[in-house]
Design a protein around this nucleic acid. Structure first.
Lengths: 264, 264
DNA sequence: AAGTGGTCTAGACCACTGT
DNA sequence: CAGTGGTCTAGACCACTTT
């Protein structure tokens, strides 16, 4: 790997480094999983300050081209996984179709009384089962799943094991099936809780998705907040034309959702 | 605004600053559009290096809480705009429903011969109209729109003015209407072209969306690549349960789409 | 012990904005 | 012109991983 720096260019040095390494990765001249030279190695060989190198690497990382491991070095990322965000058949089912191994680890399970915001989303005052789960894909800790399920129509749901498919339990036991959902997606930085669970550096970029899931009768059956490692996924979805819908009114009703912060 | 730093904490100093300023913004103690103290002011008053302050501010910016203007200072961001990414009624129509002023500026218009990747997406070898437009929402330059339209069924399309609604032209003149679309969404960093058009700093975080839009007969009518200022939007969408679909096959067919780089 | 990335300092010069 | 953010230097110490 050879990097050429043009001094006195209108382009910042860190940007020249960023672009050239990115090109090497895109062209496959450095392959997935391979290690890049260390920060000090680059800074010595290029005669630049380590801070400048770090800025270039930081940008490569925030775009998902490489990642760092403390004490080890800098590595080229694997290819992103396409994640269908309008999937209503469950995460377990989706990864099975993709042919990827999914492991689900239970982190927290508790029956809680919903606060006003949550009970408005789920349109019930009944108790709610809060499930916090970690999704491990092909050995990588990639997704945190916070689900809130109204227990009204799901008696004794808390008794079950949720290391498999939640939607399968809902259907097999209660004959409840997701039919539609309303979602939002945004990116944020990982707080210390997420950092520990996903084993990523502090303030790493993650994607947050919030959804209200409804059954065939438009009764809410789940409110869910997901956190995805942004650098490991591309998000895909299908859309269909719907005849008549007051978008503006729709937004206003749902807006408070986006500010919902889960209590654990 | 008062910031307390605990030295020798396990939490990095930049993270303490980041968290406290974020809290002030979330609580509304610093309001939208208000100016934060300058980097030097903060570094002097807190007795810290400017680099440490910059790191804290950088994280606030990448999460959309504030933004910088060169030569001016650091400001608190306005509230994000909810953007319906499964909208098939056109951008112009959407912003009108939201009650926001949208201005569309034509940047580039050319009839091109599609390369192999583009003609596969549009399923035609006919010429393609390439449109590059800038969307200005309430005076903010927020969206870049790259559209590729097969001219086969849209004779003389290039003659029209596209500073209004493209979909209105397609329907009024050719009776062609979007019926479904397949899309992907991801984030990346702004290159110099995007930086100039959206008037943002180099390597600013943006959201990229690619879509193939189909009519009622499943004939592709548009391939589009959008760039959004990530910090100014939250992305929302609806999903509906669809009975039977081979997700894995679906992904594999579409995957090359995600790597498509527009030629201008 | 040697090497890695994570954090931090105390400067410097540049380009841009406002007065 | 003074003030702002943008870039960059040449160090330093820490925590972590591997040998």
């Amino acid at each position: 790997m050879k990097i050429n720096i043009v001094a006195n260019s209108h382009e910042p040095i860190y940007y020249q480094i960023y672009k050239q390494i990115k090109k090497y990765i895109k062209n496959g001249e450095i392959k997935c999983g391979e290690q890049l030279p260390s920060e000090r190695e680059l800074s010595n060989s290029l005669g630049l300050s380590r801070v400048t190198i770090r800025k270039a690497i930081k940008d490569l990382i925030s775009e998902g081209f490489c990642y760092k491991e403390r004490g080890k070095g800098i590595f080229v990322s694997k290819e992103r996984i396409p994640l269908k965000i309008d999937n209503l058949k469950g995460t377990a089912n989706y990864f099975r179709l993709l042919g990827l191994n999914l492991e689900t680890k239970m982190l927290f399970k508790k029956v809680i009384k919903p606060d006003i915001r949550l009970s408005e989303k789920l349109k019930t005052r009944s108790n709610v089962l809060y499930l916090k789960r970690l999704r491990i894909v092909e050995g990588e800790r990639l997704i945190i799943d916070n689900a809130y399920l109204p227990l009204e129509r799901m008696l004794n749901l808390e008794k079950y094991c949720f290391e498999g498919s939640l939607y399968k339990i809902l259907y097999d036991i209660y004959k409840i099936q997701p039919n539609r959902s309303k979602s939002m997606i945004t990116h944020k930085l990982a707080d210390s809780d997420i950092v520990n669970l996903l084993d990523i550096p502090l303030n790493y970029m993650i994607t947050e998705r919030q959804s209200i899931v409804y059954d065939i009768n438009n009764i809410p059956i789940e409110f869910v907040i997901n956190y995805y490692r942004s650098d490991r996924f591309i998000f895909i979805y299908d859309s269909l034309f719907t005849k008549d819908e007051n978008i503006a009114a729709f937004e206003k009703n749902l807006l408070p959702l986006w500010h919902y912060v889960p209590t654990s």
